[in-house]
Amino acid sequence: MSDQRTHDRHAFLAETDWADAQFIPLTGDASARRYFRTHSQHPAILMDAPPQTCGSLKPFVDMAQYLSALGLSAPQIFASDLQSGFLVLEDFGDDDFASLIDRDASLENSYYFSAIDVIHNVLDADPAQVANYDIPQLASACDLAFLHYTPQPATIMNEALTAIEDALAPFQTELRTSLRDFHAQNLHWLSKRAGVARVGLLDFQDAVNTLPSYDLVSLLRDVRREVSDDFAQSARETFAKRRGLDHDAFQNEFHLVAVQRNLRILGIFARLSQQMGKPHYVDLIPRVWRLLQADLKHPPLAKLRAQLNAILTEPDHAHLERLRQPCLTQ
């Protein structure tokens, strides 16, 4: 962090109740945002998101207000300077779902079904005032796989994107709000709260209105932790029944949206390594690939599977090592 940014951070805090608090850096995420924690008299998290690299914090603030109005637990915002890119937030602690389940695997089903209750709550509400992520945009967003994971000529990439869009077309429906990065590391258990408010929500600033299956896919096809096939199947069936959806059609949609999401993640992780100096994301690529292949094995996707696997490189040792090297043309 630059000396100027440090100065700006202290200047912001000087006007808050945390002027004298000591903030300790936390592990960052895939973005350029940084986070700090204080265990002072008023525990809190400082989000440091320089607008020139992270964009505006207004989407985070707006979504926090939207979720809170639904009775859900977004972090309370104690202080803000949107122009400079600083927020002081409620600290949900370290009990994210992934950590809790690692310590006690018997909790997995109850926590995951609580998370799915949150998804239903959002889907049942009026959509948020966020960007649409419709079928053409879902398909075009897969270009990252063909730009960064396995670079392809424009003609081949466009043929693949058209095939993905054609496969998604039957699932066109009214778009509903998705928090988008809805997975175990972004969900915290708040045991002193009740109902859906027991699930603390983070990392929702990229929320969109898209296919209703998107957050369920994000939760059950988690690139950072295993979710058993049996549980995923049970969760899908329960979800479809509760929403009154045709079982087979929803299964087809789920697998296809999972393919879309993980194609994009392959490209994101490759870009994070080669262009943003974060090669540790390459370590996750073999798992993303396994998830992608598992969903492509769904019988109705056989044609798309053959087309994609003909142009995507398997993540063998040589390819992973190439992805770890900085892109010298950037």
Rank of each mutant, 00 (worst) to 15 (best):
S99K: 15
H255M: 01
A302K: 04
R242T: 12
I268M: 08
N209H: 12
H319V: 07
R221E: 14
V130S: 09
P43W: 13
A194V: 04
P59T: 03
G244R: 01
Q251C: 12
V282H: 09
A235Q: 02
L245R: 05
H298L: 05
A207V: 03
F254M: 01
I164Q: 09
Q251L: 11
F171A: 08
L87R: 01
A44K: 06
G277C: 08
Y281W: 12
R324F: 13
H10G: 06
R176L: 06
K192N: 13
V196Y: 11
A44I: 04
L292S: 03
R34W: 11
A32G: 09
I156F: 06
N309K: 10
D248E: 11
G93D: 03
D206P: 15
D215L: 01
V259A: 03
Y133S: 10
M1D: 13
L179G: 02
I116P: 05
N209L: 06
S84H: 07
H188W: 09
A169N: 12
Y66P: 06
F92C: 01
L296T: 06
P212N: 03
A49Y: 03
A74V: 00
L202H: 06
E165F: 01
R193D: 11
L123V: 08
V130W: 05
D166E: 15
N309H: 13
L46N: 08
Y281R: 04
I24R: 15
T210L: 02
P50S: 13
P151W: 14
G267M: 14
A21F: 10
